[in-house]
């Protein structure tokens, strides 16, 4: 039976890549239309007037960028006020967050005339805006890519927060198996398996190949099989299965940790961006 992704079930006639990367066609086309509209306005500006952040055109872009950023931030507010039952679906806020971020960046670049500002503050504001939107795009990419890779390449599904508990469970079961097993199996366990069962072991190799290294690390179990008596063959199989599961959990842990930690690149710096934007608006009004 061929597995069908959830996103494919909504629009079965559309290509898989389209369904995977674009959740909502109306939102996407709305975004494309908005980008096109902004660029048309910019071209009109460039041909009929000056590109300058301080003139009416430039201020318009700046105000537009600020409005877009405020709309983008509403997603954060929505997430933090779940208990207050804010209006609208969280999904809608997320679309505004994603596409609004793109519009914000475009308007910000139009505001600066697609040039790097020469002031210290504006330079940082420009750079951090790029960083925040860039890290947001990175977040979208990894949230589309990692779950697909995990479900396609691994047999187990693990909740990130349960990883330590499950590893402990595997370690306990493994020790119970080897306690009554042959000496050679116990030695093998102590030297080759036990060190890996202490804690999750994230490995960069999993980013390149999700099954990378697992088969190679399982292979010694087969070498040992010839040396063990028939009574310990079942124990060896069970220990092998446990070790294999642990390695797959490591792969989950490695990739899911990126899903959790990319926000460090995005959220704190976004707060700095808001403060810098506030200072920018204040300084523009003051000076």
């Amino acid at each position: 039976m061929k597995k069908t992704a959830i996103y494919q079930r909504k629009r079965p006639d559309s290509p898989r890549w389209l369904n995977k990367w674009i959740q909502s066609l109306p939102w996407f086309f709305g975004f494309v239309l908005a980008v096109f509209g902004c660029l048309v306005i910019f071209v009109v500006n460039a041909t009929t007037g000056r590109i300058h952040p301080g003139n009416a055109w430039g201020l318009g872009y700046g105000i537009g960028a600020t409005v877009a950023l405020v709309a983008v931030l509403l997603y954060t507010v929505r997430r933090r006020t779940m208990k207050l039952r804010p209006p609208g679906r969280a999904w809608t806020y997320l679309q505004v967050h994603v596409y609004g971020g793109g519009i914000f960046l475009l308007l910000m670049l139009m505001h600066t005339g697609f040039r790097i500002p020469s002031g210290i503050h504006t330079w940082w504001l420009w750079l951090i805006s790029l960083w925040v939107v860039g890290s947001g795009v990175l977040g979208i990419v990894i949230q589309k890519w990692i779950p697909t890779v995990l479900s396609a390449g691994l047999a187990v599904e693990v909740h990130y927060d349960r990883v330590p508990e499950l590893i402990e469970h595997i370690r306990t079961r493994s020790e119970k198996i080897v306690a009554s097993a042959d000496e050679r199996l116990r030695e093998f366990y102590e030297s080759r398996v036990a060190p890996s069962l202490v804690a999750p072991e994230p490995r960069l190799m999993y980013f390149i190949d999700i099954t990378g290294g697992i088969h190679a690390r399982i292979k010694p179990f087969e070498y040992l099989r010839a040396l063990l008596p028939a009574s310990d063959q079942e124990s060896l199989d069970e220990l092998k299965e446990l070790f294999n599961t642990k390695l797959e959990i490591d792969a989950h842990y490695t990739l899911q940790r990126v899903l959790r930690t990319w926000l460090i690149l995005h959220v704190p710096i976004s707060m700095v961006l808001v403060v810098l934007l506030f200072i920018h608006i204040f300084s523009v009004l003051y000076y």
């Binding site: 926000l263 460090i264 959220v267 704190p268 710096i269 976004s270 707060m271 700095v272 808001v274 403060v275 810098l276 200072i279």
Partner: peptide
């Protein structure tokens, strides 16, 4: 912790 880091950073910048 994310908000904490961001808050401290934003405060220092301010």
């Amino acid at each position: 912790s994310l908000l904490m880091i961001g808050g401290i950073g934003a405060f220092l910048v301010a």
